[in-house]
Design a protein around this nucleic acid. Structure first.
Lengths: 141, 141
DNA sequence: TCTCAAAATGCAATATAATTGCATTTACAA
DNA sequence: TTGTAAATGCAATTATATTGCATTTTGAGA
């Protein structure tokens, strides 16, 4: 399967071994239009991947810059595939996230960039994260 | 004490009874320059206020629009006194929050307002929340 | 293809955090 | 002063996250 090959390459590139649990996690997250919540991952993968393994996979993926962890406004962790310019040492996360208050999905709005914000004196900004709540395009129609 | 009188009025105005645990929570949060994290509240109030009571107080305060709950980028809940134009039915929260990556404090930047953001088609925004990580003015010097 | 060490997994146990139920206490209106 | 609804605090439960370790698996090298 072509898409699996890509995941294998992705794992290889990050010095990670190719295992079924890891492929399952990547496949599931990549299939979603929105970021996938940790509870959802647990629920869907519950049968085939151990809870603890899932925690560890998400942790290493995040450390390697493969996945992107987004804490939504309820404090729930959500994961999305990092855009290609993310690496372990340089997370690009200046775009914003949209939390649908109806279906609770988290959308990464990669294409929309944030305007510059003036900081108060003494404060230096490193990363920006804009979360917007509202109704998504599916729930709106 | 003048400041306690204000808290009593605040509670009265919201049809809440004046109790020691509630006053302790309000006092502690009002004393902080930054928003106060739930773990910190637990730690400081642990002796005088039961854990469960603290949960319930924070919940009702948030529902009444007295406190403002901010989930930081680690998923930890932080609480700040709402500005006066917050009510139970109309939370004003268009300002942004600054997470210091050194001392982990969360600052509410009430005075800085967000520029308008254009939404993709089909998405309707209800609330905005901009979180910025960086170094705060205290840790910078 | 086979071998083997390092890596990854899965289970059990533990730790931490949040929620629920209920009996007791307290605030405050009448 | 009294009665009642609200609030508290304890115990028990549930949910969530972490740690330790034995077993399995991957994949580089023989």
């Amino acid at each position: 399967m072509a898409i699996n090959r890509n995941f294998e390459l992705l794992l290889h590139d990050n010095q990670l071994k190719v295992t079924n649990p890891r492929l399952s996690v990547l496949k599931l997250i990549a299939d979603q239009e929105a970021a996938t919540s940790q509870p959802m991952l647990e629920k869907v993968l519950g049968k085939e991947v151990d809870r603890v393994t899932l925690y560890r996979i998400l942790k290493t993926f995040e450390e390697k810059g493969i996945l992107h962890k987004i804490i939504d406004l309820n404090g729930t962790a959500n994961y999305a595939i990092c855009s290609s310019d993310c690496t372990a040492h340089n997370h690009r996360d200046e775009h914003f996230h949209f939390n649908c208050s109806n279906c609770h999905k988290v959308y990464c709005m990669d294409d929309f960039h944030l305007p510059a914000i003036a900081m108060p004196p003494g404060f230096t900004a490193a990363t920006l994260s804009l979360a917007i709540t509202g109704i998504c395009n599916h729930c709106n129609q």
